[in-house]
């Protein structure tokens, strides 16, 4: 598994199972997803009505960036009033499903992507803003452009974890996505550095049209005036910058790019952990090899002291 899935596997398998028309059962599960997202899947009224609720830490920020519109576009008629303690709910009635298999699959896919869609709003908004800005910018030459067009729009901050955030900024020729990330562990930090170096190198080596990736420990210039940025420049916090160019922002690429970039942090941490697992397995292997060498080094028949029945010892005269 190289990439993480975007959808929640539990919701997907649960709905697939239910949609196939098995006998209705009660469901009541609270499950987590990455980044402190909590889902509640339940059948509160009858066994045929499945309610899926989501709780996202930064939902008020997402709403500010137009999450409601995105969710309404995706879920339309399935939206119900949010369950108590959750931010957003959709309800599916098993007796009122799309008739064809394709429609069902699409519905399953969309509901299992609930987290992705909720988080997608600021990205979509930024991408739209980029298109507006680039249109506006095309009216001017680089000198005559008013300051607003040159510098681009506001920075959208999503504090999706307690100490980490995504910042998105649209300009007329690119969209910049910044991750602030924190490493609790000394080892992880080192692994992280190696990985990020690889990201930077990948562009240099082979994949020219990948987005540009930058990594630094102090806040980049884009974030200068944002409140709540830790300016200490200590090694714990890192800032990873993705620069998305117009070719990444075309209509047909958009959805894919958003999904990819959202999972970046989890992807990153998953691979740090997977590399550690790999190194551990090599260490185990090597220890086993050393033990084998040690065993081989032992003399085959050790000279044992022999005793007579009365307990006296004797030595063979040479």
């Amino acid at each position: 598994m190289l990439l993480l899935d975007y959808q929640n596997v539990l919701i997907e398998s649960l709905l697939t199972d239910r949609f196939q028309g098995g006998p209705p059962v009660n469901i009541d599960q609270v499950v987590s997803d990455f980044d402190g997202v909590t889902f509640h899947i339940s059948t509160p009224e009858t066994k045929t009505k499945i309610l899926v609720s989501i709780n996202v830490k930064c939902f008020h920020e997402l709403v500010q960036y137009g999450a409601q519109a995105v969710l309404e576009r995706e879920y339309g008629q399935y939206i119900v009033a949010p369950e108590n303690g959750y931010d957003f709910s959709v309800q599916v009635d098993l007796e009122n499903l799309p008739a064809d298999q394709e429609g069902k699959d699409d519905l399953i896919r969309r509901i299992s992507l609930l987290k992705r869609n909720a988080m997608a709003a600021p990205f979509e908004q930024a991408f739209d803003e980029f298109h507006e800005l680039s249109e506006e910018a095309s009216k001017y030459t680089s000198e005559s452009a008013p300051a607003g067009v040159q510098e681009g729009g506001e920075v959208r901050a999503i504090h999706y974890r307690e100490e980490e955030a995504i910042y998105i900024k649209a300009s007329h020729d690119r969209v910049t996505v910044l991750f602030s990330t924190i490493f609790r562990e000394e080892t992880d930090r080192i692994f992280g550095k190696v990985f990020l170096q690889e990201f930077v190198d990948a562009r240099r080596r082979a994949i020219q049209n990948a987005p540009q990736v930058l990594f630094r420990n102090d806040p980049p210039l884009e974030l200068q005036n944002i409140p709540g940025i830790n300016n200490s420049g200590s090694g714990e916090i890192g800032y990873i910058t993705f620069v998305l160019f117009p070719r990444h922002l075309t209509k047909q690429r958009r959805a894919e790019v958003i999904s990819h970039i959202q999972t970046f942090r989890d992807y990153f941490h998953y691979h740090i952990k997977a590399s550690k697992a790999y190194i551990h397995s090599r260490m185990r292997r090597r220890t086993a090899d050393f033990l084998q060498v040690l065993r081989r080094a032992r003399p085959e028949n050790e000279e044992k002291e022999r005793k007579t029945a009365s307990g006296r010892t004797f030595r063979v005269q040479s």
Binding site: M1, L4, S32, F34, D266, Y270, K273, A277, S281
Partner: peptide
């Protein structure tokens, strides 16, 4: 087999449960 178990856990956590182990 600890090698396989480590990978089994890694996949259980990241692919199926979808959690960041540092938070749980």
């Amino acid at each position: 087999d600890w090698d396989l178990m480590e990978r089994f856990w890694s996949n259980s956590i990241f692919k199926y449960l979808r959690v960041e182990p540092e938070d749980h």
